[in-house]
């Protein structure tokens, strides 16, 4: 009774149809492949599963992958926001070009990006030869992995923060100026609270991309077990050795960690939007 009533109360018809379609689509694209992952994992005994995923090499790769992805997402949240700010608020020659450059990491084949980064940061590369004397080794270290993740994650933050900055009501800043807030107070008390939800979204996207990234990282990573071997590479290695169950075991742990982290970020984001009109 109550169901038919609420169905009649909807202005737009087709709720049942669209919901059905959504569930069907999500099942085909996301749920079925993912459940296959867990079914394959289930062919392992519990003991084998645990042994696989807590082996030191696997744990080291988890730590590296998630650590570098978080570090890169933090860097992008800060500098991507700055880039978005400059692109929205200032006019300068070459601005259109700079704006287009932001999307480059989206479009570039990841292998090209990886080879380029590895070349530029290697000990005799354009940047590497200046960093090396300072004792900063980038290529073939965890730092290099983070650099690659920063590179591929940048557009996510810029492109989520930029429209929010563009749409920001000028009254908010004008009121602040009227009320005697200086520039720094206006940034801290008006601008930052306004863009925080967008920055969190950008952070989540950049983080997720970093965790899943393979192509642009393996060239710069060096891929030394325990030191600079990311989890996706480890999974590929296992696949190449026909250890499908082992590969899916690692993959499912990675999936669960990613899912939990994204869930937390989503909750955080919802919380940060709690006062939106």
């Amino acid at each position: 009774m109550s169901i038919t009533k609420s169905a009649h109360n909807r202005v737009l018809p087709g709720f049942g149809l669209t919901l059905g379609y959504t569930i069907f689509y999500l099942s085909v694209i996301v749920l079925i492949p993912l459940s296959a992952l867990f079914f394959k994992t289930a062919t392992l005994s519990w003991g084998d599963f645990v042994a696989t995923v807590i082996s030191p090499r696997v744990i080291a790769s988890f730590r590296l992958t998630f650590g570098a992805a978080i570090a890169a997402a933090v860097a992008n949240a800060v500098f991507g926001t700055l880039v978005a700010w400059v692109l929205v608020r200032y006019r300068f020659p070459g601005k259109k070009l700079a704006d287009a450059l932001v999307d480059l990491p989206f479009a570039l084949p990841t292998a090209v990006a990886g080879i380029t980064l590895a070349t530029v940061y290697s000990s005799n590369g354009w940047l590497g030869k200046y960093l090396e004397p300072l004792g900063i080794k980038v290529a073939f270290t965890p730092l290099g992995i983070t650099v690659a993740m920063v590179f591929i994650g940048l557009p996510f933050v810029v492109r989520t923060v930029q429209p929010v900055l563009e749409e920001l009501e000028p009254e908010l800043e004008e009121a602040a100026a009227c009320l005697g807030a200086n520039r720094w107070q206006t940034i801290r008390r008006v601008l930052l609270p306004s863009i925080t939800p967008a920055v969190i979204t950008g952070f989540a996207l950049a983080f997720a991309r970093g965790v899943g990234e393979y192509g642009s990282i393996i060239f710069i990573a060096g891929n030394m077990p325990m030191k600079s071997e990311i989890t996706p590479l480890l999974i590929i290695t296992k696949l190449e050795q026909y250890d499908y169950a082992g590969a899916t075991a690692i993959a499912s742990v990675m999936l669960v960690i990613s899912f939990v982290m994204l869930l937390v970020i989503n909750i955080l984001q919802k919380w940060s939007r709690r006062y939106a009109a």
Partner: peptide, 17 residues
């Protein structure tokens, strides 16, 4: 702008948070 003379807007310009 100066806190001695303050503007009030049609859209209020309140801080939602």
């Amino acid at each position: 702008p100066d806190p001695d003379h303050i503007m009030i807007f049609q859209d209020y310009g309140l801080y939602p948070w």
